[in-house]
Structures are given as structure tokens and as C-alpha cells.
Amino acid sequence: MKTTKKLGIYMDHSTAELIEFSDASKETKTVCSDFNIQDKHETLQRSESEMHNKEQHSQKTYFKQLATSVLEFDQVVLFGPTEAKTELIHFLRQDHKFEKIGIELLTTDKLTQNQQHAFVRDYFKKFDVKFL
């Protein structure tokens, strides 16, 4: 029987915490967007259009980094307090490579790292049905 690889991604527009669900140690990989508030202020002083273009380019790069990680898994839960998770799933659905990956979106409050791990554990545990 094939082992299903499961991933939880707690994200907003600037960072994403990738939490693999497994019986092994709970390590979190962090992916950060390279567009920050300082960049926004600097480019906004020159031009709103330039700021918007830079922000879109940075977001696309950020989503590509996350997409590369998602390809390694069979089931993914995207969760967090912002709409970034919705934007990511729209980005992923544009590519047919992600059709066979089960992806679900859930809105949560802001969570600590321990709460994120507990959320991923509890989410995937409800699918682990053991037959005798």
C-alpha cells in the first residue's frame, strides 16, 4: 500500500510555514516572499504602477517556490488568516501538474508554530481510518 504524503501550509502574503505530516520529527520549512513593506514604500514613492508590477512579480516567484514544494505531496491543506491561500490555489490550478493533488483551503486565526503543528496533525488524523 502506498504511503500518502501530506503537507500543511500556513501562509500569508509574506511567509509560508510548510509542515509535513508524518510520524517523524516535526520540522517546519519557511518560505518567504522577497517583497516587503520597505520595498513597497520605496517603489510607491517613484510610481504606483512600478510598485504594483514589482509586487506581482514577487508574488509569482513566491507562489512558484511553494508550488515546487507542493508537487512532492499527495494531500495539502492551505490554512491561515489571509486570502493568500486562495490566491495560491488559483495559481496552482492553472497548471495541470496539480490536478491529482488533493488541496483544501481552511481559514484560521493567526496561529503560533505549536498551534500550526497541532492544526495539521488534527486535520490529517481525521482521515487516518484504521481497519482491523
Rank of each mutant, 00 (worst) to 15 (best):
8 G>N: 13
25 S>Y: 03
44 L>T: 01
107 T>L: 08
6 K>M: 10
43 T>G: 04
81 P>I: 02
53 N>H: 15
49 S>P: 01
126 K>T: 10
17 E>A: 13
96 H>T: 14
84 A>C: 03
32 C>H: 13
37 I>H: 09
93 R>F: 13
40 K>Q: 08
49 S>M: 04
68 T>H: 12
107 T>F: 12
27 E>N: 04
117 H>K: 15
101 I>M: 08
104 E>W: 09
49 S>Q: 12
122 D>R: 15
120 V>M: 00
114 N>W: 08
75 Q>P: 03
6 K>A: 03
119 F>L: 08
105 L>P: 01
42 E>L: 06
94 Q>R: 06
23 D>Q: 14
101 I>G: 04
48 E>D: 11
90 H>E: 12
122 D>A: 15
39 D>G: 00
71 L>T: 05
128 D>G: 01
25 S>Q: 10
61 T>R: 09
9 I>W: 07
62 Y>M: 08
70 V>C: 01
87 E>R: 14
11 M>Y: 03
20 E>A: 14
63 F>E: 05
45 Q>L: 04
104 E>G: 07
25 S>F: 02
99 E>T: 04
96 H>V: 12
16 A>N: 04
50 E>M: 04
35 F>Q: 01
53 N>K: 10
32 C>R: 14
17 E>C: 12
23 D>A: 14
91 F>T: 05
27 E>H: 01
52 H>A: 14
74 D>I: 01
79 F>G: 04
55 E>R: 12
92 L>V: 03
33 S>I: 08
44 L>N: 01
117 H>P: 11
38 Q>V: 05
123 Y>P: 03
12 D>N: 11
8 G>I: 13
116 Q>I: 02
14 S>A: 06
5 K>S: 05
123 Y>R: 04
27 E>F: 00
113 Q>D: 10
71 L>R: 03
77 V>D: 04
129 V>Q: 09
81 P>C: 00
85 K>Y: 13
83 E>A: 07
46 R>L: 00
39 D>V: 01
113 Q>N: 09
84 A>E: 04
81 P>Q: 01
125 K>F: 03
83 E>Q: 08
71 L>F: 07
128 D>L: 07
108 T>Y: 05
27 E>K: 06
79 F>W: 10
26 K>D: 15
79 F>P: 06
8 G>L: 15
2 K>Q: 10
73 F>T: 04
128 D>S: 05
132 L>V: 13
62 Y>T: 10
25 S>M: 09
82 T>E: 11
119 F>S: 06
93 R>V: 05
111 L>P: 06
